[in-house]
């Protein structure tokens, strides 16, 4: 697993924020407060320990994310949530400031030097329990979420568009049935025609001249037994019609070496017949 590089911290950004938390996500102390989600948009583990979060541009080092916490190492394309409850003593993910539920808020995320701004966002005034986040994790466009997604990706699918369309436009299933049956028939008809024409073409191509046209024999017919004629006829029939399958049987002939010893000698294994 790759480790932290300072440069990769710059690919960490605000991803989703909920300011007015009435009935929403609770923290480890079963308390509700504003929460801020950061997203590691890179494909490496990023340690945000030592970086700063603030809601005041004049005080960029308002909250230093403590170093040495294993949880500040954000896995690739993953998230962490901070609670803006003003109680930093509750843990490393509890900020020492709160957000204004009645007005707009601007958040800043600074690099470890406390000067380099990595990301900032202004959150409009929203109704309680609505969050403001990027429509797709790490992307530029923001929107309001009625279904909040703390600690996970913002874009989730709660329905299948195709299914919804069928439910709306074809509630009786007639359209689906007709079109699907038509496709099944077309596919098998295609296969059927292919093999019909293939068989015709194949037979034409492989028809051999009749044996009687090419075989000249001086052997008088009355000199050959009936069984032999039957066997030859069967063989000619099979050859002309190409009906002889490739045989599956494989005979392996392997030479067996056996060193002679009286123990393996067959002669000693035989019981001698008693003499009367």
């Amino acid at each position: 697993m790759s480790t932290t590089l300072s440069a990769q911290v710059t690919r960490t950004c605000f991803n989703e924020i909920l300011v007015n938390n009435k009935t929403n996500f609770i923290d480890d102390y079963a308390q509700r407060s504003s929460w801020i989600e950061l997203f590691n948009a890179s494909f490496n583990v990023v340690d945000i320990g030592g970086c700063f979060l603030s809601n005041d541009p004049n005080n960029p080092t308002m909250y230093m994310i403590p170093k040495g916490d294993v949880l500040t190492k954000i896995q690739k394309r993953q998230h962490v949530v901070f609670f803006a409850d003003g109680h930093a003593s509750k843990g490393n993910f509890h900020l020492n400031f709160t957000l204004d539920t009645a007005g707009t808020n601007t958040l800043y995320f600074y690099n470890t030097d406390g000067k380099t701004l990595i990301d900032s966002v202004t959150i409009p005034v929203l109704e309680a329990d609505l969050s403001y986040g990027r429509l797709i994790d790490g992307e530029a466009n923001w929107g309001v979420f009625t279904r909040v997604t703390p600690s996970t990706n913002n874009l989730t699918l709660d329905s299948n568009e195709k299914v919804d369309k069928f439910a709306l436009n074809d509630p009786d299933g007639v359209g689906m049935s007709l079109s699907a049956v038509a496709v099944v028939f077309s596919v098998l008809l295609l296969l059927s025609l292919f093999f019909y024409w293939f068989a015709v073409a194949f037979r034409k191509a492989t028809t051999k001249p009749k044996m009687r046209d090419v075989v000249h024999s001086n052997i008088p017919a009355e000199g050959i037994p009936g069984e032999v004629i039957a066997a030859i006829s069967a063989a000619i029939y099979e050859m002309e019609n190409d009906v002889h399958d490739i045989e599956n049987t494989i005979i392996t002939i392997e030479r067996t070496r056996r060193t002679y010893s009286p123990w393996s000698s067959k002669i000693y294994g035989l019981r001698k017949l008693p003499r009367k």
Binding site: V174, S177, L188, S192, F194
Partner: peptide, 22 residues
């Protein structure tokens, strides 16, 4: 090969049940 079409016709059962299930 024309027997393939019987295999296609029997699939109507799938879509009949689909319509009824809806």
């Amino acid at each position: 090969p024309k027997l393939m079409l019987i295999g296609a016709a029997a699939q109507i059962g799938i879509f009949g049940a689909y319509a009824i299930a809806l």
